[in-house]
Amino acid sequence: YDILVKGQFIVSKAGIEVMRKQGFGGDIVNIVSKNAVVAGPNNPGYGSAKAAQAHLTRLMAAELGADKIRVNTVNPDAVISDSNIWSGGWAEGRAKAYGVTVEELPAYYAKRTLLNEIILPDDIANACYAFVGGLLGKSTGNALNVDGGVGMGFYR
Score class of each variant (00 low, 15 high):
142 N>E: 15
122 D>E: 14
10 I>D: 10
65 G>V: 11
124 I>S: 09
110 A>I: 08
134 G>N: 09
11 V>Q: 13
56 L>F: 13
142 N>G: 04
86 W>P: 06
60 M>W: 13
77 D>H: 11
78 A>Y: 07
95 A>S: 05
3 I>F: 07
141 G>V: 04
28 I>V: 10
33 S>N: 11
74 V>Q: 08
31 I>E: 11
134 G>D: 10
69 I>Y: 11
72 N>D: 10
37 V>G: 02
124 I>F: 02
71 V>Y: 04
114 L>C: 12
133 G>D: 12
106 P>K: 06
27 D>G: 06
8 Q>P: 03
133 G>T: 04
45 G>C: 11
97 A>S: 12
33 S>T: 02
31 I>T: 14
120 L>Y: 09
76 P>S: 10
112 R>A: 02
6 K>Q: 07
52 A>N: 00
115 L>I: 04
113 T>I: 02
43 N>V: 03
129 Y>L: 15
127 A>T: 13
130 A>Q: 12
111 K>N: 08
19 M>C: 08
14 A>L: 13
152 M>P: 01
25 G>A: 07
143 A>E: 15
104 E>Q: 15
24 F>D: 13
82 D>I: 00
82 D>S: 15
70 R>G: 10
125 A>S: 15
44 P>G: 09
5 V>G: 02
35 N>V: 09
144 L>Q: 11
31 I>L: 13
86 W>T: 09
99 G>T: 03
140 T>L: 04
118 I>H: 13
113 T>D: 06
152 M>Q: 15
45 G>L: 15
88 G>W: 00
88 G>T: 01
79 V>H: 05
28 I>F: 04
9 F>D: 06
149 G>Y: 03
112 R>D: 09
133 G>R: 13
143 A>D: 12
79 V>N: 06
64 L>V: 04
24 F>Q: 14
156 R>W: 04
26 G>V: 09
85 I>F: 14
149 G>V: 00
112 R>V: 03
112 R>G: 00
143 A>V: 06
151 G>W: 07
65 G>H: 05
72 N>G: 08
142 N>L: 12
32 V>Y: 06
80 I>C: 02
134 G>I: 06
34 K>N: 07
85 I>R: 03
89 G>K: 13
135 L>V: 09
96 K>I: 04
153 G>L: 13
77 D>I: 05
68 K>S: 14
118 I>A: 14
88 G>P: 01
81 S>F: 06
78 A>V: 01
29 V>K: 10
16 I>F: 12
18 V>Q: 14
95 A>N: 05
131 F>P: 04
155 Y>W: 12
81 S>C: 12
76 P>W: 01
46 Y>T: 03
96 K>V: 06
131 F>D: 05
4 L>Y: 07
60 M>C: 00
106 P>D: 12
9 F>K: 06
23 G>W: 02
117 E>T: 14
86 W>M: 01
136 L>K: 12
96 K>Q: 13
34 K>H: 01
108 Y>A: 04
83 S>I: 05
7 G>H: 08
103 E>V: 09
106 P>Q: 08
146 V>P: 02
49 A>Q: 11
3 I>P: 09
85 I>H: 09
115 L>M: 14
88 G>R: 00
17 E>L: 10
